[in-house]
């Protein structure tokens, strides 16, 4: 993957959107689906709430187009705004998020987490996928967000650092602690013990 080229394309996309609002539709179309999934995963909102949050996210992105720094991938910058807006929405509504994923991606995440968390090979991936959602949603926000970004959104440390505006070292520490907590929660969860 040639990152500088991607950033140049990102910069051109942003420049075009600044010059003509209709061009902004291309940017919205590119990020609508991933951001919609991310908002759902992070906040567990209803379809209508997600649409409301996304509208605010894209309006905010539009207002801040001139602050985009092409040294950073556009997706990280867009995710950062979506993250902040979602957390802000979540705090206003104090709702406990519900992580949701379809069965196919759930099994894929379960396969990754199985090796990361040293889960028994006998444990059924589908079973892990179902249970892992409730374990992740029980984590404190600072751990939940890194788990969602790393395993559900497949972001690397640098991207997570850019999205959360935290040093990469801190992201690594948070992720390591989050995995520990996840492992502990899995071990304490009766559903996993009985599996």
């Amino acid at each position: 993957m040639n990152e500088p080229q991607i950033n140049r394309q990102d910069a051109e996309l942003v420049r075009a959107a600044i010059q003509d609002p209709r061009e902004y539709g291309t940017l919205v179309a590119r990020f609508a689906a991933p951001l919609s999934r991310y908002v759902v995963r992070l906040a567990g909102l209803s379809h209508d709430d997600v649409q409301d949050v996304l509208q605010e996210v894209f309006i905010k992105i539009y207002r801040n187009l001139n602050s985009y720094n092409p040294e950073m991938p556009l997706s990280s910058w867009v995710y950062r705004i979506a993250h902040n807006e979602t957390i802000s929405h979540l705090r206003k509504n104090t709702a406990r998020p519900t992580i949701s994923m379809d069965s196919e991606e759930g099994e894929s995440i379960a396969a990754t987490l199985r090796s990361e968390l040293d889960l028994s090979k006998e444990t059924d991936e589908k079973f892990i996928a179902e249970r892992i959602q409730e374990v992740v949603q029980s984590l404190p926000e600072k751990y939940r967000e890194v788990i969602v970004l790393r395993y559900f959104e497949d972001k690397d440390y640098q991207e997570i650092s850019d999205i959360l505006k935290k040093p990469p070292g801190t992201v690594a520490t948070l992720l390591s602690r989050a995995k520990e907590k996840l492992k502990k929660s899995v071990a304490e969860n009766p559903a996993f013990r009985s599996a």
Binding site: I18, P21, R22, Y24, G25, T26, V28, A29, A32, Q51, L54, Q55, F58, I59, Y62, R63, N64, L65, N66, S67
Partner: peptide, 20 residues
């Protein structure tokens, strides 16, 4: 669609990107 809704809102409310 969402892009159409966003563009419509931008034009209707005359939203502009904040200057650099």
């Amino acid at each position: 669609s969402l892009p159409e809704k966003i563009i419509e809102r931008i034009q209707k409310e005359d939203i502009k990107p904040s200057p650099r």
